[in-house]
């Protein structure tokens, strides 16, 4: 474990230096992220200037859904940015080096470029969350607050699983990291409470492509709206999804054919 931390620390140092040597590229990326965040906040404010609730949720409850979703997305991007470099590594054959090193290759692939710009973003997000939570007219329950990070962790594992599936598919097909863009694009759907969508869409995004479990369940836990049954479903799905993705990666590695020399 100590070895992995030391490697991650060095990767983080290198990533930071790399960002600083590409200031314009990463500055633009960070600016884009801030603009997107502000735009979505304005959209929520605009919606609630015309209506008192959305699918039965108050303004601050909707903001909790929005911020939780944004937080999980940001955590995933901060930790697993390496996924976006993977296709080139596979195509150019540089992944051969990764695979031959005495370290878990999946760890090296996913954590290759820890994103500190995203980490910086996490602090205001958490502050906003506290603010929104303080505005809620609900009975303060310390248990709910304790469960919230646990469900964030489960969501993080699910997001990790999606990244693992994405890199496995890239390794197999040598095509783009398209699967991760399915997550990125559907994340937009999860910025609002799932009840705004029809029942069949909710079912699909809960049990088939579980973005509701990933992004909405932690918010529901914080709001005290998740039933014990659904909490257990989330737990089971996390283990199956994350475990399955690791199995898939292992199988993928066995069939890796490497780029031609």
């Amino acid at each position: 474990m100590k070895k992995y931390f030391r490697v991650w620390k060095q990767l983080a140092v290198m990533a930071s230096e790399s960002y600083m040597s590409n200031r314009i590229e990463y500055g633009s990326y960070f600016l884009g992220k801030i603009i997107r965040f502000c735009f979505l906040m304005l959209m929520i404010a605009a919606i609630f200037s015309h209506t008192g609730n959305m699918a039965g949720y108050t303004k601050y409850q909707v903001i909790i859904f929005f911020l939780t979703s944004f937080l999980i997305d940001t955590l995933g991007q901060a930790a697993f940015r390496g996924v976006y470099l993977f296709r080139e590594d596979v195509r150019q054959g540089n992944f051969d080096y990764t695979i031959s090193k005495p370290l878990n290759s999946l760890f090296l692939v996913l954590s290759r470029l820890p994103d500190f710009l995203d980490v910086i973003f996490i602090f205001p997000l958490v502050a906003f969350l506290f603010y929104a939570f303080s505005k809620l007219d609900i009975f303060y329950n310390p248990q709910l607050l304790a469960y919230y990070p646990v469900f964030l962790m489960l969501s993080f594992l699910m997001v990790a699983g999606i990244h693992v599936i994405s890199v496995t598919l890239t390794m197999w097909t040598m095509e783009s990291e398209s699967f991760i863009w399915v997550l990125r694009n559907t994340t937009f759907l999860s910025l609002f409470p799932p009840e705004v969508y029809s029942g069949s869409i909710q079912l699909f995004f809960t049990f088939v492509f579980p973005i509701i479990v990933i992004f909405a369940f932690p918010a529901k836990v914080l709001l005290g709206l998740l039933t014990l049954k659904m909490a257990l479903v989330a737990l089971a799905m996390t283990f199956v999804f994350f475990g399955g993705s690791l199995l898939l990666w292992k199988t993928g590695l066995k069939h890796y054919s490497s780029a031609s020399s």
């Binding site: 290198m14 230096e17 790399s18 040597s21 590409n22 150019q92 054959g93 540089n94 051969d96 080096y97 031959s100 020399s261």
Partner: peptide
Amino acid sequence: ALVMGQKNQLWWDL
């Protein structure tokens, strides 16, 4: 150790 003339393990920007 493995060294491949047409591939690289060094970080390009650093």
